[in-house]
C-alpha cells in the first residue's frame, strides 16, 4: 500500500506507450538503415554474455561498478563500460527473434540482481518494440519480468526510492498494455 501507482497514471502510461509504439513502427525503416558509429559492435545472436555487456556495460557485468551508472560518458568509448543505451538506431535493427532473446537475457540477469537504471531503459525499449500478438514464450518472459519487479518492489523501504517508478512502469505495461491483467496493480 502506498507503493503502487494510481489507476489514472497506469492508464496514461498505457496510452502513451501505445502512441510510442506507433511512432517506432514509422521510424523503424529510417533508423535501421542508418550507419552505426564504429564503436557500436552489436553482439551476435547467441552471444548471451556479449548482450549483457553491451546493454549493461562491463562495470555491471563484471560486478565492479562503483560509480553512478547514470553518469554521462566522457567519450563514446565509455559506452563499453556503462553499456550502450537503447538508441533507436540500435533497437530498430533487432528482429523479433533477437529482441525476445535479449529481453530474456536481461530478465534472467535481473532475476539474480538488483534493478539498475540502464536495465529499466532497455526493458522499456524492448517492450516498446515487441510485436503483438505475443508468442507464448514472450508471454512467459514478460510475466516473469512483472513478477520479479513486484518482488523487488516489495523489498523497497521508501516510496521515495528512485527505483519505484521504473518498477511500477514495467509492471503496468506488462499487465495492462500486454493484457496480463492478473498481474495488474489494482486501484
Amino acid at each position: 500500500v502506498g507503493f503502487s501507482p494510481s489507476l489514472r497514471w497506469q492508464q496514461q502510461q498505457v496510452s502513451n506507450f501505445s502512441d510510442i509504439r506507433q511512432s517506432i513502427a514509422k521510424n523503424r525503416k529510417h533508423w535501421s538503415s542508418q550507419t552505426l558509429d564504429d564503436n557500436v559492435l552489436m553482439p551476435k545472436l547467441a552471444d548471451e554474455e556479449g548482450w549483457k555487456r553491451f546493454c549493461l556495460g562491463e562495470k555491471l557485468y563484471l560486478g565492479t561498478s562503483s560509480c553512478d551508472p547514470d553518469e554521462e560518458p566522457e567519450s563514446a568509448l565509455d559506452y563499453c563500460k556503462v553499456g550502450f543505451p537503447p538508441f533507436l538506431s540500435i533497437v530498430s535493427r533487432l528482429n523479433q527473434t533477437t529482441l525476445l532473446m535479449v529481453l530474456e537475457i536481461l530478465i534472467s540477469w535481473f532475476e539474480e540482481r538488483e534493478f539498475v537504471p540502464q536495465l529499466g531503459r532497455w526493458l522499456y525499449a524492448l517492450l516498446a518494440c515487441l510485436e503483438k500478438p505475443l508468442l507464448p514464450e514472450a508471454h512467459s518472459s514478460i510475466r516473469q519480468l512483472a513478477r520479479r519487479c513486484a518482488q523487488f518492489r516489495s523489498t523497497l523501504e521508501s516510496r521515495e526510492d528512485e527505483k519505484l517508478p521504473a518498477l511500477n512502469l514495467l509492471i503496468c505495461l506488462v499487465a495492462r498494455y500486454f493484457e496480463q491483467s492478473d498481474l495488474a496493480d489494482q486501484p
Binding site: 497514471w9 538508441f87 517508478p165
Partner: peptide
C-alpha cells in the same frame, strides 16, 4: 517513399520517453 523529416524521431527518443514516464510517476 520519402519520409517527412518532421516525422523522424531523434535517436534517443525511446530513452526520453522512458525517462518522462518514470518522472511522471504518482502513487495512488
Amino acid at each position: 517513399e520519402k519520409s517527412d523529416d518532421s516525422d523522424i524521431w531523434d535517436d534517443t527518443a525511446l530513452i526520453k520517453a522512458y525517462d518522462k514516464a518514470v518522472t511522471s510517476f504518482k502513487t495512488a
